[in-house]
Each structure stands twice: as structure tokens, then as C-alpha cells.
């Protein structure tokens, strides 16, 4: 098969290939000797350093140098003060702000989770009914018109985005609370809408924190 020549020692210890010793299948007593213990330990130590320190440190430092904002968690600041992360939903209850999707964990990153309720679980139906009723009442629309993303809890519990429909339905309430023309709020919504990447990946979405900060900037 190839030109190299191997002799086989039972436990893989290097033996000189000078004499044509016929390898023998017996002699398993030799297994477990220093032939495997030393390389196992040294291998583990070397690769803990290589894979566990060298690789992640290089990747982290290089990533941080190339993309300093993203590397720190895409923090958003207002006049120097950290508001949060553009990638992490915050709770909004005031009528002056757009609301994010429901969270099964109160938007807390330390306990974040989805609801983990199955479609047949009565608790899920109860939760969805309550959310649909609340959203419909608040925005003054029929329950059947409430978009799915506003009655379902997100997977992470900190989904930063809502659907375009959910944003447009909230716009009149916000315009009213801020004494702004609805068209101006709608224009802001459209400006912060992102479509599917390359027209094919993911869904159309609106980042709630960025939109709300844009609203505040407009008011100043």
C-alpha cells in the first residue's frame, strides 16, 4: 500500500524496525504500561494550553482589535451613559415607547429562557390569550389582528426585534402620547426596518431599542 514499513508493538511503543519481528496478538499484559499513560497526560496538558488558551486568546484579541464595538457586546450609549446592548431587549411599558416581544424571563440575561411550554399546554393558551387581549386593547385593534410575534414569548427571552406589522400597529399610540404626527413615527419605523439579508435569510424586523432611542433623539 505504501513504501514505509511498520512494525507493530502491542502497546504502540516505538520499537526499532530493524529485525523482522512478527507482531503477536497476545501479550495484552503490556497494555496500560507507561506506553499510554505518559502520552495521555502530556497530550492533555499540551492541548489544554493550545485549544483552551492559545486559540481563544488569539481569536478574542484579534476579534477585539478588528471589531471593538461588537466585541464588547454592541453596547449603546446615550451621552456617555450605557443604556444597554442593541442586541438585548429591554422592558418598555410607557405609552411613549414601542414594546418588545413578550419575555418568559423578564428580560433578565441572568435567568433568560424561553417559556418551554408545549403547544398543548393549557398554560400556554392562557398566556397567549392574555397577551392578545392586552395588545388588542392597548392599540385599539381586534384580537384577530394581533401579530404572532406579540403573543408568543421569544426563544432567548431577550429578542431585540419585533415584526414590521407589530411596529406599525403600535405607531398611532406612540404618536398620540408624544403629540407627534403618526406619519412621522411611521417614517421612523420604516427607517429602522431591516429586511431579510440578501433577500433570503431571516425575516423583516425592527430593533425596538434603536427605534425608541431614535424617538427620544427626535424629541430633544
Amino acid at each position: 500500500m505504501n513504501s514505509r514499513y511498520y512494525t507493530l508493538d502491542d502497546d504502540g511503543i516505538d520499537t526499532t524496525a530493524a529485525d523482522h519481528s512478527v507482531p503477536h496478538a497476545s501479550g495484552r499484559a503490556k497494555h496500560g504500561g507507561s506506553g499510554v499513560i505518559w502520552p495521555s497526560i502530556v497530550f492533555a496538558l499540551i492541548f489544554v494550553v493550545l485549544c483552551g488558551l492559545v486559540y481563544p486568546v488569539i481569536a478574542t484579541l484579534a476579534g477585539h482589535a478588528l471589531f471593538p464595538v461588537q466585541a464588547e457586546g454592541s453596547l449603546v450609549r446615550d451621552q456617555g451613559r450605557v443604556i444597554g446592548s442593541a442586541l438585548v431587549a429591554q422592558p418598555f411599558t410607557s405609552d411613549r415607547y414601542f414594546s418588545p416581544r413578550p419575555s418568559a424571563a423578564g428580560y433578565d440575561m441572568l435567568t433568560m429562557a424561553g417559556s418551554n411550554l408545549s403547544p398543548g399546554n393549557p398554560d400556554l393558551h392562557k398566556a397567549m390569550s392574555a397577551r392578545a387581549a392586552a395588545f388588542a386593547k392597548r392599540e385599539g385593534i381586534p384580537e384577530a389582528a394581533v401579530p404572532a410575534d406579540m403573543v408568543t414569548a421569544s426563544g432567548s427571552g431577550i429578542d431585540p426585534d419585533i415584526s414590521l406589522v407589530a411596529a406599525r400597529l403600535q405607531a398611532p399610540r406612540i404618536a398620540h402620547a408624544r403629540h407627534m404626527p403618526v406619519a412621522q413615527v411611521q417614517a421612523l419605523v420604516d427607517a429602522s426596518t431591516r429586511g431579510p439579508t440578501f433577500g433570503a435569510l431571516g425575516q423583516t424586523r425592527v430593533n425596538v431599542l434603536e427605534l425608541n432611542m431614535a424617538l427620544d433623539r427626535l424629541a430633544r
Partner: peptide, 28 residues
């Protein structure tokens, strides 16, 4: 990281959420 996955050795950040009326004083 380019897309937004953190790569840093600093500890957790603290944000002050925009809507003070929502009842979350600090977000870790």
C-alpha cells in the same frame, strides 16, 4: 465577532434601561 458575537475579557456590563417606568433599574 464581525456580526456581533462578543470577544472580550472584560466582565459583565451594566446598562441603565431607557424606560425607567418599566421597573428594571439595571440590566446586566
Amino acid at each position: 465577532t464581525w456580526q456581533g458575537v462578543p470577544a472580550t475579557f472584560s466582565g459583565a456590563h451594566q446598562g441603565t434601561p431607557l424606560d425607567a417606568s418599566a421597573g428594571m433599574a439595571k440590566q446586566v
